[in-house]
Amino acid sequence: MRLTYTLATKHKVKTVTVSVFRHAMIIAISFVILYPLMVKIPSAFMTEADAIDRLVRWIPTKLTLDNFKVAFQLMNYPKTFTNSLVLALTVSILQTISCMLIGYGLGRFEFPGGNLIMGLVLFTLVVPPQLINIPMYLNFRFFDIFGLLPKTINLLGTHWPFILTAITGTGLRNGFFIYIMRQCFKGMPQELEDAAYVDGAGPFTTFWRVMLPGAGNSLLIVFLFSFVWQWNDIFLSTLYLGGSLEYLPFALQDISQILYEGRREFLVTFQYASLLNNAGMLMFIAPLLIIYAVLQRYFIESIERTGITGF
């Protein structure tokens, strides 16, 4: 009796300790992760007087929407937002489709060279994009479909470099997406496919009617990653679009530079510059936060089931 009592107490003490430790760690880490948002949100609604007042740290004494209004105009938000959204949607939809097809080919068919191609997919992933960016830049600057056109055309400043790499599964980190899709299709039961073939479906009908409906989660993951990475991308956009101010990330970078360096007609205190900067950053990440808020359940649940547990 006494033994069971002490064992039970010991067990309880242990669970409580573990639970306290776990929650303490989680709260501490969450604080670090949320810290940038905790600075951004109050700053964006703060007045200049509050920003200068060192006593005001987290909670503004007066809320204002003026920072958003000014940042909205400075960034030319409606136009730059639409441009960036169109580009990100185009790229992510095309990448999702192409990586889905390539992943299906690699995951469900055993043809000579299949493993080699999978190896090449991973190889494209581990080669730094910087290595090939100058040749890519020049190939798109003097584009002649590799010798087929009599005169070269300049594709820089258009969406074509993004589109061409997206439909061929060679865009930024597409190797990763192909890998996710391949793992997804590979995990589907053979019986399902065989049943479809017995019923007289061809390979394409089987893909479309039988395999694809089961791949929803992985497709969503790929689409999300693709969209988020394209939205955040400055690397390829700098290269192909020359950092054009028509796109949101560069417009955001530009207002920050204008304000802090006091260029053009804006000669403002750096406190005020910071407020506008924070409002601008919030407007930039807002679409991502909204998508994440809506889809987080699918996102977290399904990535655990995509089978990316190792190469």
Binding site: I102, G105, R108, F111
Partner: peptide, 12 residues
């Protein structure tokens, strides 16, 4: 049937 796989990976 496995050769159809080439059609799928052709874009890559």
């Amino acid at each position: 049937r496995n050769y159809v796989g080439y059609v799928f990976v052709l874009p890559f």
